[in-house]
Design a protein around this nucleic acid. Structure first.
Length: 181
DNA sequence: AACCCGCCCAACT
DNA sequence: AGTTGGGCGGGTT
């Protein structure tokens, strides 16, 4: 449960619609705390956030560099999220390792769970990698949708929208690259 | 410490 | 196209 007292910081939230559904961010002064993406209804997203947060948090306008990038990414642009400040404080060392490795997968390309496990020095940890990615607090920004199964199937996707959204994002990235060739 | 689960994988059938 | 056993981190009791 997300709690301002535990984090010892103020948390604010913003909601905004995109072409892949309603998105939202939770932010502290340390940076991005949570990112939600792909909700069909604004209220679904609101309920989800309300269920994850243990205190009253302040709503702020959906502006700023990160939100801007998310909006541009969702509209099919080739966006780099490099330089986005994120609050990693609630994540285990293993999860941080997995997510930071995932961050290096370039726009428009994919990697398998097994290969990612190998690159972080955990050769038989594919399933553990999947577990860590399932709890990715920053979908889109950390492109967990670019990690697929070894047999070519998409695998799972726990962010709003599920595997449908995962496929849509991959397709969107392919299309964007083809256009700019 | 034991137990269970999960965005998996390779090697089978 | 299913099934099986292995493998791993993390949460729960």
């Amino acid at each position: 449960m997300i709690n301002e007292k535990r984090y010892r910081v103020l948390i604010t939230y913003s909601l905004f619609p995109t072409s892949i559904g309603w998105c939202g961010v939770l932010t502290t002064q340390r940076g991005l705390l949570r990112l939600y993406a792909g909700y069909a209804e604004r209220n679904q997203l609101l309920n989800h956030i309300a269920g994850a947060v243990d205190s009253h948090i302040k709503k702020v306008p959906a502006t700023g560099i990160v939100i801007d990038k998310i909006k541009r990414y969702c509209s099919g642009k080739h966006v780099s999220f490099e330089g986005c400040k994120m609050d990693w404080s609630s994540l285990s060392p293993f999860q941080q390792k997995v997510l930071k490795a995932a961050l290096k997968i370039p726009y428009g390309s994919v990697e398998t769970y097994g290969n990612l496990a190998r690159t972080i020095g955990c050769p038989h940890g594919s399933r553990a990698v999947g577990n860590a990615l399932a709890k990715n607090p920053f979908p889109l920004v950390i492109p967990c949708h670019r990690i697929i199964r070894g047999d070519g199937k998409p695998g799972g996707f726990s962010a709003g929208g599920g595997v449908m959204l995962k496929n849509k994002l991959l397709q969107m990235e392919q299309l964007s690259l083809q256009k700019n060739r």
